[in-house]
Design a protein around this nucleic acid. Structure first.
Lengths: 150, 150
DNA sequence: TATCATTCCTATCGTTCTCGTCGGAATGAT
DNA sequence: ATCATTCCGACGAGAACGATAGGAATGATA
């Protein structure tokens, strides 16, 4: 029950793309340097994000990545699905019992718990968007500047 | 982001111990047969549950396992912790940044998201107890009997 | 057209985690 | 004394994960 590095790196990447004021697309190499992440690995994650339509890419010289949707419309759940696939924290009756829980009522109840778990977390993740996260980061920044100010 | 088999097996085991009307302790072998789980693996899980004080064991002939607490006081979260350890779905600043998020406000915001996720998760799991799960199972059973009745 | 920066595709590697198996010691009721 | 049981630690196969790598495709620029 852990978040993968892919997911975290994707969050950082998208947050960077949204929050840092870059003109034009940002190359994978530049992203990897800014975020201090392994370049080759980040490339794969960027491919995931592109495949899911969260970012778009331009090839060739002067190419790079930029957001492909309104940041208010990119939820953390979208990012999760893009990097880890559908949120399905248990192995649902894959082959053993056709009717889901079959004759075992206890299994059935556990499935119900899993379902509750799943829907709770999907809605939690959908509640966070790139916009909300970014403005939270900016308000943090302001607060710290106020404290550190001369 | 998956539940382990240990966790699911533990749920099934404790549910069996609570819901099925057995007199006296139930041996590991009997449990493994009832639940159709690998005996040697289940033994390890039972050891986890005992270590956490959820069940108690009696050795020797006629020995076996039984619950050690009021089923209303055994939450799914207890079972989670017993089998998977403390819920900590991300690697918290282990060595890299002493101040948690350091200078990177985006990391800081992600940590906040993780914290929200974590506390939601824990309170959800604490809301389910052996009692609630078992009575849910029993009501399922009743409903099915009503449908299947002649 | 040649060059070069970039994305894109696919294979691989090493480590860690997980599920499951195993042998055998300790215990305790009969 | 016997036998069923819990208890303890080691081990192995396989998957998942983080990361590395080579090289092809693309496209702006000169």
């Amino acid at each position: 029950m852990k978040f993968s590095a892919r997911f975290e790196y994707a969050l950082l990447t998208l947050l960077h793309l949204k929050c840092e004021p870059d003109e034009g697309p940002v190359s994978g190499k530049a992203l990897a340097e800014s975020l201090k992440l392994p370049y080759r690995f980040l490339e794969q994650i960027l491919a995931d994000l592109k495949r899911s339509g969260l970012i778009r890419a331009a090839r060739g010289s002067q190419g790079g990545y930029r957001l492909n949707r309104d940041p208010a419309d990119i939820s953390v759940y979208d990012i999760y699905v893009a990097t880890e696939g559908q949120f399905q924290p248990w192995d649902c009756g894959a082959g053993d019992d056709k009717d889901g829980c079959g004759s075992d009522h206890n299994k059935c109840v556990i499935s119900a718990f899993y379902g509750d778990f799943r829907s709770t977390f999907i809605s939690l993740m959908k509640g966070y968007t790139l916009n909300t996260l970014c403005s939270a980061a900016q308000s943090l920044k302001r607060n710290q500047q106020a404290v550190t100010a001369p």
